[in-house]
Amino acid sequence: MLDDRARMEAAKKEKVEQILAEFQLQEEDLKKVMRRMQKEMDRGLRLETHEEASVKMLPTYVRSTPEGSEVGDFLSLDLGGTNFRVMLVKVGEGEEGQWSVKTKHQMYSIPEDAMTGTAEMLFDYISECISDFLDKHQMKHKKLPLGFTFSFPVRHEDIDKGILLNWTKGFKASGAEGNNVVGLLRDAIKRRGDFEMDVVAMVNDTVATMISCYYEDHQCEVGMIVGTGCNACYMEEMQNVELVEGDEGRMCVNTEWGAFGDSGELDEFLLEYDRLVDESSANPGQQLYEKLIGGKYMGELVRLVLLRLVDENLLFHGEASEQLRTRGAFETRFVSQVESDTGDRKQIYNILSTLGLRPSTTDCDIVRRACESVSTRAAHMCSAGLAGVINRMRESRSEDVMRITVGVDGSVYKLHPSFKERFHASVRRLTPSCEITFIESEEGSGRGAALVSAVACKKACMLGQ
């Protein structure tokens, strides 16, 4: 009897593995994704193909990295998701002549009506938060230079001027797309009239992360975010950046690689679950690469896999709870928690219980395998993109072996128990001629924006502006 049951459990697990095998990517698959990513990057950089390229390769006008001589107080704003952060950054000489960066910050959550109302409502709310922060720190009387981390696709015309191309991540505030974001912020500050600010720089969160990590390690020339969304930036040779005049030196390019796949480059790798996630998203047909990796989508992918296993009578005796059938019910943090389970399955059992399920031991094991399959594919897909960037940098610099540091931020990278190990191992397999160091950014977005502002202020002083 026991043997029969054991055989049935083994057969069930084997069927589960057959279904989950769809998520496995072979090294040849990853090399294919990497080569296609490089081709799209090239198209994004070139003037004649930029418009139709899915990977936009947006110039950021960040050319210099901090040298350690900029000092002063800077205000930093960070808008990239449902939370908005205001930070005071003091850049100065530390002990023994070292450079020191001290920060104080406060988080504000953005109400739904500000995210989806008008641009005026959104930026009025942001300036209200700045006003509140300055009151708390008794700094209303000071006109501070301000660095703005704005983590949406922007076409820069200068370091302090950028046109919002399109909202992502659930934002829909009308009247912002096609307009200068810094102008919208300046107008809102003017409307309030109770404080003055000098907006000197606007950067993407990947750029802010790279600059913040450069402060720790001067070989950091790539910034990457794996959180709600997924994106990367890197220092490109100016001669390859056709959208900006000049051939000397390097400029940081914001790849906006989340949109890779929007022209069909990933079609052969998309599964039924991916198509369902895409169809029910706020932007169907867009940001397809990001939807395979980002935390906004990972939990939902797992939920759809679990429903398939229920329908195949391989999980929960073929019956799903009402909660499990509800879109968004299986949160991405559950994926991390399930994979963090120590082996007694308590954590998995508790999560499934909150979803109205009474799982068996085998159910718990199957749910864990589903989570591992989805998150491992995410790590491997992400590795193909980064390997594409790094191999490109090595080739354009004609280096036999390139040493490089990548600064990384984002909740999936930082909080998932195995993502970074799987990701690092896969990147290294795909970049055999590179020695890569990964560092995690601390308060990256805010500190990085302030350091970019410090560079901009120093330049302005040198130019006598």
Rank of each mutant, 00 (worst) to 15 (best):
A450K: 03
I225Y: 05
H317G: 12
R303Y: 04
N231C: 02
L307D: 15
L75N: 02
R392V: 08
D267Q: 13
G299L: 05
I351Q: 12
S375Q: 05
W257V: 01
G385C: 04
P417E: 07
V226Q: 00
E372I: 13
G328S: 14
S353V: 12
A378I: 04
L415H: 08
R397C: 10
R429S: 12
L144N: 08
L292Q: 11
S396H: 12
G97V: 12
V338C: 07
D198E: 15
K90P: 02
M210F: 04
E268C: 12
E237G: 04
V335H: 05
K13F: 15
L309Q: 15
E93H: 12
L164I: 03
T255I: 08
I159E: 02
V71G: 15
K15I: 13
E440I: 14
V302I: 06
E40Q: 06
E279C: 14
L307N: 14
S281A: 13
A450F: 00
P145N: 13
R250C: 01
G117M: 04
E96Q: 11
I163S: 02
L430K: 04
D78L: 05
N254E: 00
R447S: 02
V277G: 07
C457R: 12
G446L: 15
T405H: 14
A53N: 01
E237T: 00
R46S: 13
M34C: 09
N179M: 10
Y215K: 04
Q286M: 14
K32C: 12
I293C: 00
S69E: 11
K414R: 14
G385F: 00
C371A: 12
D363T: 08
G97M: 10
E177N: 01
Q337N: 12
A173P: 07
H218G: 15
E331W: 01
V71N: 15
P432R: 10
N179E: 09
G444N: 02
R308D: 14
D135L: 12
S212T: 03
R392S: 10
S383T: 04
D3P: 10
A387H: 04
A188K: 00
Y61D: 06
H380K: 12
E319M: 10
E95F: 11
T206K: 07
N179L: 07
Q337K: 13
P145L: 12
N240G: 11
R428Y: 10
F84N: 00
D409T: 09
K13P: 12
A425G: 11
L122V: 02
A320D: 07
R155Q: 06
L276M: 07
C434N: 14
M235G: 04
E221S: 14
V277N: 15
E319G: 14
K140T: 06
F423S: 05
F195E: 00
E242G: 04
T209E: 10
A232S: 14
P66D: 07
E128V: 08
S453V: 06
T103K: 02
Q465W: 13
R368M: 08
K143Y: 08
H137I: 15
T255L: 07
D217P: 09
V71S: 15
H141P: 04
V181W: 01
A282D: 15
Y349A: 09
L185N: 08
D274N: 14
E120V: 13
T431S: 13
S373A: 13
D124S: 05
L2Q: 11
G464H: 11
A259W: 02
S100M: 07
D73H: 15
H218N: 14
R369Y: 14
M462W: 12
R7A: 11
Y214M: 15
G295P: 08
G299V: 01
S263Y: 15
L288Y: 14
V427F: 01
D158E: 10
A379I: 07
W167G: 01
C220A: 15
V182S: 05
E9G: 10
A384H: 02
A329L: 13
R403P: 11
Q287I: 08
E93F: 07
D158C: 06
L463K: 11
L304Q: 07
E14L: 10
K346A: 15
V101Q: 14
H218K: 09
I189W: 00
W257M: 14
K90Y: 05
V335K: 00
C371K: 05
E221C: 05
P111K: 12
F260V: 01
H416R: 05
S418M: 13
V335F: 06
R392W: 12
G246N: 04
G388I: 02
I348L: 12
E22G: 13
G448D: 04
P359T: 08
R63C: 13
V401Y: 09
R191N: 04
V277T: 02
L301K: 08
P59M: 08
G264C: 09
V277I: 08
Q337C: 14
E112F: 07
S340D: 11
D341N: 10
E331V: 13
D363G: 10
V401N: 09
N240D: 00
G464I: 11
L122R: 07
D365A: 13
F316S: 15
G44N: 08
Y297R: 04
M210I: 06
V101R: 07
Y289F: 07
M402F: 12
V401I: 08
G285Y: 08
W99N: 15
P284K: 13
G92R: 14
I351K: 13
N350T: 07
Y413R: 00
M298P: 12
F438P: 02
Y125N: 03
L20M: 08
E399A: 10
F195D: 03
D363M: 11
G444R: 03
T332D: 05
F152Q: 00
L415V: 07
L45P: 05
M8R: 10
G448W: 00
G294K: 07
R325S: 14
P284S: 14
S281Q: 12
R333A: 15
Q465N: 14
M107D: 05
I130L: 07
L292P: 13
D205E: 00
S373L: 07
I436D: 00
Q106V: 08
C233N: 00
P284I: 10
S433H: 13
K90Q: 15
V226I: 10
G295L: 02
P145I: 11
S411G: 08
C364K: 13
D363N: 09
C252K: 04
K104Y: 08
E157D: 05
L288Q: 13
E237W: 03
L122Q: 01
L463E: 14
H218L: 10
L357C: 07
R63A: 11
L266R: 03
M87P: 07
C220P: 04
P59W: 01
P359A: 15
S433I: 08
N283T: 06
Y349Q: 08
L134H: 03
S127D: 01
E279T: 15
V452R: 01
I404E: 05
D29W: 14
G44Y: 02
L45A: 07
D132R: 07
W167L: 04
V367H: 05
K169Y: 01
E237F: 10
L304W: 08
E52G: 08
F438Y: 09
T228Q: 12
R36Y: 11
V33Y: 01
I351M: 07
D132N: 09
D365G: 08
